[in-house]
Design a binder for these strands. Sequence first.
DNA 1: TAGATTGTTAATCGATTAACAATC
DNA 2: TAGATTGTTAATCGATTAACAATC
Lengths: 216, 216
Amino acid sequence: MLMQKVSVKVSMAVVRRLPKYYRYLGDLIQDGITRISSKELGKLMGLTASQIRQDLNCFGGFGQQGYGYNVEELQKEIGRILGLNQSYNSVIVGAGNLGQAIANYEGFRREGFVLNAMFDVNPRLVGNTIRDIKIYDILDLGGYIKENAIQIGIICVPKEQSQSVADTMMDNGIKAIWNFAPADVQVRDNVVIENVAISESLYTLTYLMNEPQLDV
Amino acid sequence: MLMQKVSVKVSMAVVRRLPKYYRYLGDLIQDGITRISSKELGKLMGLTASQIRQDLNCFGGFGQQGYGYNVEELQKEIGRILGLNQSYNSVIVGAGNLGQAIANYEGFRREGFVLNAMFDVNPRLVGNTIRDIKIYDILDLGGYIKENAIQIGIICVPKEQSQSVADTMMDNGIKAIWNFAPADVQVRDNVVIENVAISESLYTLTYLMNEPQLDV
DNA sequence: TAGATTGTTAATCGATTAACAATC
DNA sequence: TAGATTGTTAATCGATTAACAATC
């Protein structure tokens, strides 16, 4: 019987741990560690060894019995799974502090993210450059995306404008939106979205600060 | 029999949804909506009505049969649960773009977060002000925290410095750390931490972009 | 070889969903 | 009152942990 190999849907719980594995493994490489067991990695990351093995085996058997995992190889595999083995064209819309902070972050460039352009409504910013990246008028956004095959749109505008910016992006064929405005942006089929909502993390923090200590 | 009412531990899954409820309810207030059912709110937020009722009932019965929830009242209650009914003193360490972006964000001020000071190592930045907030030398961090009863420390420095900044904060009695450096900071008992790791969200996005479409 | 550690199945635990009596 | 919708219990689903044979 011919088996059609159908890739099983991986749960988001697993997917959201992958970048963390990727980061920790990168740190290990920097520290010159060449091999690690699920037990050691779990201790480092605050996960159980069992969970790590389960997670990794969603994608394949990357380890070796009696040995553990080759750090460099495993990081590379996870990078590939995350899609970090390819390059992406991106634009940032909103050239305020947050947009600039992201534009200046070395890490993304290092991972193959190309920032092609920035956009803003403010005429004082339009025409300037940040790290050699030119800031264009937001009216040129749609045309630019189409002409330059931009895949990722990064939204750093106030929440009132976030959905309309996203719509312009999608109208011109963007494939993914990374939204920092504090309002969930709605996307169409075949467009993926990450709504960051930074403040949610702060409010979780204050919740935890005030959580009753229940050492009963 | 006298019952000792012991507050049951609320799961992090629930806690992390609370800020989202808070935000959506705030938007509803702005739109002049005064009442809402769990069904309607669920539709809006992409959750089931059942989940919303379960979540809210971890903290009390805020609704009314046959009516639903009073939007304003519910938002206020959730704000209280999140600890947003009080004011917090905070400092930002690292006055680069990201630190400045957070310093400039109106939303936090509005919710009662007071930014008392910023700190940096760069002598060019020290002495400047951002929105009336003075930037101090990072050497003064410990003393400042102690003298001004700072509760929340916001870390916007490179990852190499993040743990030592956190240690200084904790040595001087900080209660909570909001860490934006791309390295998990370790905290002691009675100190709460949110490690944001913004890039993880981007890598999740590229994963989703490349996920095999399994419409079998 | 013996020891270590994986990959994987089974067991457990927790979170989400469904259902419905209570009641506004 | 009848209709709507909650609060809450029970059922289901999914994720995590435990266990262990396979094997390097």
